[in-house]
Amino acid sequence: MISSVLAVELAYWQQTTLRVIGGLVAILLPAGGLVYVYLFKMMSFMQSRLGPMEAGPYGSMQLLAEVGKFLQKEDIIPTKADRFVFLGAPFVVLLSTFLLLLVVPFGPDAWFVDLDTGIYFAMAVSSISVIGILMAGWGSSSKYSLLGGIRAAGQLIAYELPMILAVLGVVIQAGTLNMNEIVFAQANGEIFGWGGIGNPYIITQFVGFMLFLVAIQAELTQPPFDMPVAESELVAGYMTEYSGLRFLLFFIGEFATAGVFSAIAAVLFLGGWYVPFLAPEHNLYNVLGPLVLMAKIFGVAGLIFWFRFTYPRFREDQLQRLAWKFLIPIALVNIVATGVLKVVF
């Protein structure tokens, strides 16, 4: 990571310490940024209002004020709740988000863990959050929570399949599961023999990209897929009984996951840390790469939040129909088509 930029050799524990600090920054910075830029400001402007303006210039310190507020709130645990399960749920949800971030490369050498199974590992750990959400729904011992938790589980498992199948198209094209090698495959790729801008897979895998965007929207339980937390039907779904800091942890988890999923989409479809006209082996990428990837994260997240603020909520039956009758068949056709094109050409 840092070692090759500064040309110093670091022991394993030193590297790991740096990576952990980098990881905390890489997960909290986009999460905070997304909340401010999109949730506070873009949503407000779309609704013809200003949003937070008091805390700091243009309300930019609003998030810190919110954290300060939540820190002082009383921690209410329902008497009838299953204490262990209730208290454990936020840990599981945030654990899933953290492990998901691990495989995202921020530069040729600036990675957290260079797993050969890369994207496969990411798909595996992303489903841990289902367990956390079910724990929250079950442990709260509230009817709204239970309904919300079961709805969320049904939704998350239904949309995990289109997500996995959409990723498979990229894996076929790149011929590797390793995230960094997927970036290199895009950087060194050619479009009909012209390698000027590489071959970002959004061009050849456009169907896969759209499937992936829809699936992560559902995985994040954001509108139009927000039935698990539908405030007009279920109060706050599986989060109903959580107050103060524990609620904030779910909230952070949601936006951190939005950032990490955007990063994964950016790596798979937009070329990750690579920018055209600069060879991917260039050493500059260890500094430039994180900034480029951050810009792409905000680009993809912009799309996600735009959908969030624009579309009304689906009905529960429409949601399952969309996943099983439209997205999964399309994804299967996409896999076969990609395979045929890969072998024939």
Binding site: T16, L71, Q72, D75, L94, L99, L102
Partner: peptide
């Protein structure tokens, strides 16, 4: 690399624990 994964998992759990612990000094009960 899987040791690093385990360390990151530990850090995630510790971060949540520290945040909740910090809150317990500040919040009423």
């Amino acid at each position: 690399s899987y040791l690093t994964v385990a360390i990151f998992g530990g850090v995630a759990v510790a971060l949540v624990g520290v945040l909740l612990g910090l809150g317990s000094f500040l919040r009423p009960s």
